[in-house]
Nucleic acid binder design. Structure first.
Lengths: 181, 181
DNA sequence: ATCTACTGCAACATCAATGTTGCATTTGAC
DNA sequence: GTCAAATGCAACATTGATGTTGCAGTAGAT
């Protein structure tokens, strides 16, 4: 039953993330039904609705953190790291489509983690500026926002584009749009 | 009192749009309180919560339609029309930050209007492709998504940037990112 | 000054979501 | 086969949001 429990928990989290992304006010009953488990089972795993949300956020943050680690944002050459980051983060955005910025306000711990990850990416963008991959007149914060927007767009509005091609599209639009080439 | 009523109604719509953008499940009580009117007054104006949402959407669609008209997307030169559209649509996005795509599912009439407006913009993007302002290998749907993403980003994450400068930033990133220049 | 429309306030009914508990049943581990 | 953990099911209490109504007060139009 250990295996069953783990499988169900994971299913609830993924289903919950999907439904909550479409409608943040989705009821726990709807999530439970979509995940194929009873409503009370969900309540036994997660004390509150907030606890469920926290678990979803944590799962997304875990995945994102792994991507940031493996992209080697501080060591690898900018174009290489950028592409590796994109190819990794786009599936994460698709699997956990919840908007972390909006929904984590009431979870200070998760917010702090998110801030830390955000800072890592901002540092990378700054490095791209410093090393001349972006035009000198480009504001780093704007560059950062553009990158996030492109990722969200390709991840959610073009789910059929596979990660490598999606990464190409985003990197191309980003480096051409704000870069020197 | 006609004047009072109209002013209060407008205030409720704007306040509601702002709160609903932050949290789509904001209660009518919270909206009424933020707008400085009694809860029952809101219920007297809008039969349902859905009616309130419809009114917000309609207000946004009205503003957006005016922008589309005045931009002369089919007649003016592409760069001119683009800039005029951006300078007009960014304030609209800021004043009505509600996400029309997600929240209008249950309002077929508003959805249809939104589709029509979306089609006008898509047609314009297609013209930009045909006239050589965008690279030949760029998918029109992707270009459209990029433009929307840039507008949302500058509108909501950089509220301090005034519309003309914001339009410059978006047009620059868009035309450089996907264009031939 | 009067009338009308609008508002705030209080009270009420309703409903959906949340969260809890007890019990029978299932299922994997040993 | 036995045991323990987990689940489904039904029932219940609680809470917050929604929507309604009656009444008194208020402000603008005439």
């Amino acid at each position: 039953m250990r295996a069953d429990a783990a499988r169900n928990l994971s299913s609830v989290l993924r289903t919950g993330a999907r439904l909550l992304a479409e409608d943040p006010s989705t009821s726990m009953a709807a999530i439970a039904a979509a995940a194929g488990v009873d409503r009370t089972t969900v309540h036994r795993r997660f004390a509150n609705r907030e606890a469920l949300l926290r678990a979803v956020f944590q799962a997304k943050l875990d995945s994102a953190e792994r991507v940031l680690d493996e992209a080697r944002l501080t060591e690898a050459p900018v174009p290489v790291a950028l592409h590796r980051y994109l190819e990794g983060i786009i599936p994460v955005a698709r699997e956990w489509p919840v908007d972390t910025r909006r929904m984590m306000q009431k979870d200070p711990e998760a917010s702090a983690r998110r801030e830390a990850q955000s800072a890592r990416l901002s540092t990378f963008i700054q490095r791209a500026c410093d090393e001349g991959y972006l035009r000198a007149d480009i504001d780093a914060a704007w560059a950062r926002a553009v990158l996030d927007a492109l990722v969200d767009s390709i991840a959610h509005q073009f789910p059929a584009v596979d990660p490598p091609q999606a990464a190409d599209l985003v990197a191309d639009a980003f480096l051409r749009g704000l870069g020197v080439t």
